[in-house]
Amino acid sequence: MSGRDCSFASQAPPQKLSASGVSPQAPSRSPSSNPSQSGVATPDAAPLTAPSLSKLDLSERSSINSQQDPSLDEPINLNHMELMIHLTLDKDMFNLSDGIGDFPSNFLFGIHKSLDSPYLLYQLLAFSARHLAFLHPESSASYHYQAAALQTRAVSLFNAAWTEVNQSNCVPILLFSTILGHHFLADTLAQRDPGGLEGFITHYIQCVEMHRGIYAIAQTAWPLLMESKLEQILSWSSAFNTRPPKGSHCQRIRELIDSSDTLSETDKEAFRQAIQYLQLGFDVVLAAKEEPGNRYQMIFKWTLLAPPEFTGLLAAKRPEVLVLLAYYALLLHHGRSMWQIGDAGVYILGLIVDYLGPGWDYWLEYPRQMIAKDVEQAL
Results as ranks from 00 to 15, higher is better:
Gly3Ser: 08
Asp5Tyr: 10
Phe8Gln: 07
Gln11Thr: 01
Leu17Arg: 10
Ser18Ile: 00
Ser18Ala: 13
Ala19Gly: 15
Arg29Ser: 05
Ser30Val: 02
Asn34Glu: 10
Val40Thr: 04
Ala41Lys: 12
Ala50Glu: 10
Ala50Leu: 15
Ser54Leu: 14
Leu72Cys: 04
Leu72Ile: 04
Glu74Cys: 10
Met81Tyr: 09
His86Phe: 15
Asp92Ser: 12
Ser97Ala: 08
Gly110Ile: 06
Ser117His: 09
Tyr122Glu: 07
Ala129Arg: 04
Phe134Lys: 08
Leu135Glu: 11
Glu138Asn: 12
Ala149Arg: 09
Ala149Gln: 11
Gln151Thr: 04
Thr152Ala: 14
Phe158Thr: 00
Phe158Glu: 03
Asn159Gln: 13
Thr163Phe: 02
Val165Tyr: 05
Ser168Thr: 14
Val171Gly: 01
Leu175Tyr: 05
Phe176Thr: 00
His183Val: 01
Leu185Cys: 05
Ala190Phe: 12
Gln191Asp: 09
Arg192Cys: 06
Asp193His: 15
Pro194Ile: 01
Gly195Met: 07
Leu197Tyr: 04
Leu197Phe: 10
Tyr204Lys: 05
Cys207Asn: 08
His211Glu: 06
His211Phe: 09
His211Asn: 13
Trp222Val: 00
Pro223Gln: 01
Leu225Ile: 11
Glu231Gln: 15
Ile233Ala: 07
Ser235Thr: 15
Arg252Gly: 00
Leu256Trp: 08
Ile257Lys: 06
Thr262Leu: 06
Thr262Gln: 07
Leu263Asn: 03
Thr266Tyr: 03
Asp267Ile: 04
Arg272Phe: 14
Gln276Thr: 15
Gln276Asp: 14
Gln279Pro: 14
Val285Cys: 13
Ala287His: 03
Arg295Cys: 09
Tyr296Gly: 10
Ile299Val: 15
Ala306Glu: 04
Thr311Leu: 05
Lys317Glu: 14
Leu322Glu: 00
Trp339Glu: 03
Ile341Asp: 02
Asp343Lys: 12
Ile348His: 01
Leu349Phe: 08
Leu351Ile: 03
Ile352Pro: 13
Pro358Ser: 00
Pro358Glu: 01
Asp361Val: 03
Trp363Met: 06
Pro367Gly: 07
Arg368Pro: 02
Leu379Phe: 14
